[in-house]
Design a protein around this nucleic acid. Structure first.
Lengths: 125, 125
DNA sequence: TATAATAATAGTGATAGTTACTATTTTCGA
DNA sequence: TCGAAAATAGTAACTATCACTATTATTATA
């Protein structure tokens, strides 16, 4: 994997965001810096970066979301507003180990909780 | 939700399968019994059945998969052959409880491991 | 049982997220 | 500096899923 300012930008946007942006979010943000960046380039780089482990792909109901890779954590996604929250957790590594004991090779772990977040529940009343 | 033989069939197919079939898998299987069942009907019933908790929807990389057991367990998906394995686990409910303590309302929990399964790793050598 | 209201269907078309393709441009080593 | 390799922009294609509509099946009721 060589260098391109587009890939650096995509990585920087994911790294600086706490909102778990979608590919389209990242595309729109990237266009502020490189106006003619193409959506395909954003998708390709998101795939490359998540394959190499530099960012994390979160498979949510409608389209994927992306996260900077910090330590192992889970996500909570509100089915109403679509926001994704981080959930610190431990014990997941132990579970993955158990699968590896069976001869499988775990490359990626996704723990996702979905429901209605506090503020959406409030605005429902 | 009333009755329809199409919905019964979709439910029966999911209930009798251990392979975590996709919507298309279920559609193809259903056509053996009801040749003119439509793909839209399969999708609609899969949505209805998973909403009512009669079956479980598993969001995998490419398209969703469905499972008969709705009791809490995780999945391991092989990125090579696409097969989905069940992973029994406990402690997930405790995690969901912790999120609820923050005022959120957890409706669905997805714990997905991805990697290369034993037999795919073997056939790689 | 007959019938009217309701729900579900088949078939088709539309949508959205994502990937593939190609000609052009950029990167980077020699 | 030059040329091979990689990356890009732009567009088109693909796939999973959902929406729409006329028709058919189910169900409640008289």
């Amino acid at each position: 994997m060589g260098y391109s300012k587009q890939r650096e930008l995509v990585k920087a946007i994911v790294a600086s965001s706490c909102a778990h942006p979608s590919a389209t979010d990242i595309y729109l943000e990237a266009r502020k810096t490189i106006p003619d960046i193409s959506l395909g380039t954003v998708y390709r780089n998101l795939s490359l970066l998540s394959q190499s482990g530099e960012i994390l792909r979160i498979p949510v109901d409608k389209g994927d979301r992306f996260d900077k890779t910090t330590c192992c954590h889970a996500h909570f996604c509100c089915v109403k507003c679509g926001r994704v929250f981080d959930v610190p957790t431990d014990g997941m590594a132990a579970l993955a180990d158990r699968i590896c004991d069976h001869g499988h090779d775990v490359k990626r772990t996704t723990l996702l909780f979905e429901g209605v977040c506090k503020s959406c529940a409030k605005s429902d009343e």
